[in-house]
Simulated scan of single mutants.
Amino acid sequence: MGLMNDWLRSKRMKDPVRGSAHVVACSRYLSPAVKSNLVMNLIVSAEGLQPTPVEHECMCRRTSGRSRA
């Protein structure tokens, strides 16, 4: 309830379809922090729709072990 739920409800897709995203490029972790902002370039595809390039920014958690270069 409240403003947050109203805002989230307005952000839902009217006619969602199942699809996939192919990661074309991704920024690197720039610090040894556990979490970092990353920017990913994706190609989003779904049946009946044209593949669409998308830039997505999100907070990601680094897993244990060495990071890949």
Rank of each mutant, 00 (worst) to 15 (best):
A46E: 01
M1Y: 09
I43S: 00
S64L: 14
M4S: 03
C60R: 15
G65S: 10
S36Y: 04
R61H: 11
W7Y: 15
P32R: 15
E57L: 08
V54R: 08
D6K: 10
V23W: 00
L8A: 05
W7R: 11
V17H: 04
G65N: 08
P32V: 11
D15G: 00
N5K: 10
K35A: 05
G48E: 13
G19D: 00
V44A: 04
G48L: 07
M59P: 01
E57I: 13
G2C: 05
G48D: 06
C60E: 15
V44S: 02
C58E: 09
R12G: 00
V54G: 04
E47R: 12
T63C: 13
R62W: 05
A25H: 11
S45K: 09
K11A: 05
P51K: 09
V24G: 05
V44Q: 03
M13A: 09
E55W: 02
V44I: 13
V34E: 12
S27F: 10
I43C: 00
T52F: 01
R28W: 05
Q50V: 07
V34G: 02
L49P: 00
R9W: 05
V54T: 09
E55N: 07
R66K: 12
V24E: 12
T63Y: 14
M1P: 12
S10P: 00
E47Y: 04
C26D: 02
M13S: 05
A33Q: 09
T63W: 08
E47N: 10
R9Y: 03
S10E: 10
S67P: 06
S27Q: 13
C58M: 14
N5R: 13
G2N: 04
T52E: 08
S31T: 15
T52D: 02
G19K: 01
G2Q: 04
V23I: 12
L8H: 05
M1G: 15
R68Q: 07
N41D: 13
E47A: 12
L49Y: 09
G65W: 06
V54S: 04
K35F: 04
A46I: 03
C58F: 05
R62N: 06
S20I: 01
E55I: 11
L49E: 08
P16V: 06
N37Q: 13
M1D: 14
V23R: 00
A21F: 03
